[in-house]
């Protein structure tokens, strides 16, 4: 476990920021880029993959303060920790040979090397701030383009291994916390409208589909023929609309006496478990932290913790984070106990 020191670092994007932060935790812009003279990673020999990795690492010398990590040098806990931190994809974690990641200061910038494309540059920003995230990713792409020649043509734009990413190579996404819409059952009607807008929804870890803690990612589904500005505006606009719907549903829940009583009961029960339990699985932590967060966003008096604290706990209670903190591999039961202790300490 080499990344032990990273566990203590604060995570820039968990800071509650902006008027939409109740429902929009963070925004991410990802740019796919490939080197023009090489087959895509899926068709490269191990040796060629390594030379792409070397080239990309050399070019990232120009990114100030960035740390370069070869995934084959890391153990499983380190790699899962990076997935939990949203710095690498589950796919990169599963295939570490000749794969790497460059991480910028504050962990808001990451450059994955030899994922589906040679380079995946991504930037995270707190709250609803896709333009800020895109600005950071585009600036990094410009820096890298000083030493690397990207595959690009006028008619198709940036060339990618999968044609769904072709064009700008941009995937703009927002991580939304939607407990009221989820519990009221109206979430599916909202998500069903996304494809018509050229968008889609995914679960917490992006590439997969699992929903935990009522957290959803919405993003553009491909973007060929649409400009960066159009894509950013489409995702921002939808995220804003969904955030408004969440706020309205939450206000409705708390305005009628009967549903107010039930909602408050759920929120304070969750707070009670989080501040008292001795064994908590990650799945259970997510469920209760989501309810606690709902209560904090609604400003119910008498709850433990703060939004910033709960945002951090959603990250730090993940399994590899618990192991990283202890600096050793743990059984699920040991993790559940340490997770419960950690939550009690932080919410005290």
């Amino acid at each position: 476990m080499q990344l032990h020191a990273m566990e203590k670092l604060s995570i820039g994007w968990t800071r509650p920021k902006g008027s939409e932060h109740g429902a929009v935790l963070c925004s991410r812009a990802r740019l796919a880029r490939n080197l023009e003279d090489k087959p895509f990673p899926g068709r490269l020999s191990p040796q060629d993959l390594k030379s792409v990795l070397d080239e990309a690492f050399a070019a990232s010398d120009d990114l100030k303060g960035a740390a370069k990590l070869r995934l084959s040098d890391l153990d499983g806990t380190d790699r899962r920790f990076l997935v939990e931190r949203h710095l690498i994809s589950p796919d990169l974690e599963a295939h570490p040979a000749a794969r790497g990641v460059v991480i910028g200061t504050g962990e808001t910038l990451s450059l994955m090397v030899n994922e589906e494309d040679h380079l995946r540059i991504s930037a995270l920003a707190p709250g609803l701030s896709l333009h800020e995230a895109y600005g950071a990713a585009a600036a990094a792409a410009t820096v890298l383009s000083r030493r690397l020649r990207f595959a690009y043509r006028e008619d198709f734009g940036y060339l990618t291994a999968c044609p769904t990413n072709l064009g700008t190579g941009l995937r703009a996404s927002c991580l939304l916390h939607l407990p009221a819409l989820t519990h009221s059952g109206s979430i599916n009607a909202l998500l069903a409208r996304l494809p018509r807008l050229g968008l889609n929804a995914r679960g917490l870890y992006g590439e997969g589909t699992k929903v935990m803690g009522d957290l959803y990612q919405i993003a553009n589904a491909g973007g060929f023929g649409r400009t960066e500005g159009e894509l950013l505006a489409a995702v921002s606009e939808s995220a804003r609309r969904i955030a408004l719907a969440e706020n309205k549903t939450r206000t409705d829940l708390l305005s009628r006496p009967e549903s107010k009583r039930r909602t408050e009961d759920s929120v304070f029960r969750a707070a009670g478990i989080l501040t008292n339990a001795r064994l908590v699985s990650f799945e259970e932590a997510c469920r209760h932290l989501s309810l606690l967060r709902l209560g904090l966003v609604s400003e119910l008096p008498g709850l433990p913790g703060s939004l910033a604290e709960v945002n951090m706990l959603l990250v730090q209670t993940q399994p590899a984070h618990i192991e990283m903190r202890e600096n050793r591999e743990l059984s699920p039961a040991e993790r559940d106990e340490l997770r419960a202790t950690r939550i009690r300490e932080r919410l005290d």
């Binding site: 043509r153 006028e154 008619d155 198709f156 734009g157 044609p163 769904t164 072709l166 064009g167 700008t168 941009l170 050229g198 491909g222 973007g223 060929f224 023929g225 649409r226 400009t227 960066e228 500005g229 159009e230």
Partner: peptide
């Protein structure tokens, strides 16, 4: 797959 788009923009 991209709603009729045939050319890159951006």
């Amino acid at each position: 797959i991209h709603h009729g788009a045939v050319r890159h923009r951006g």
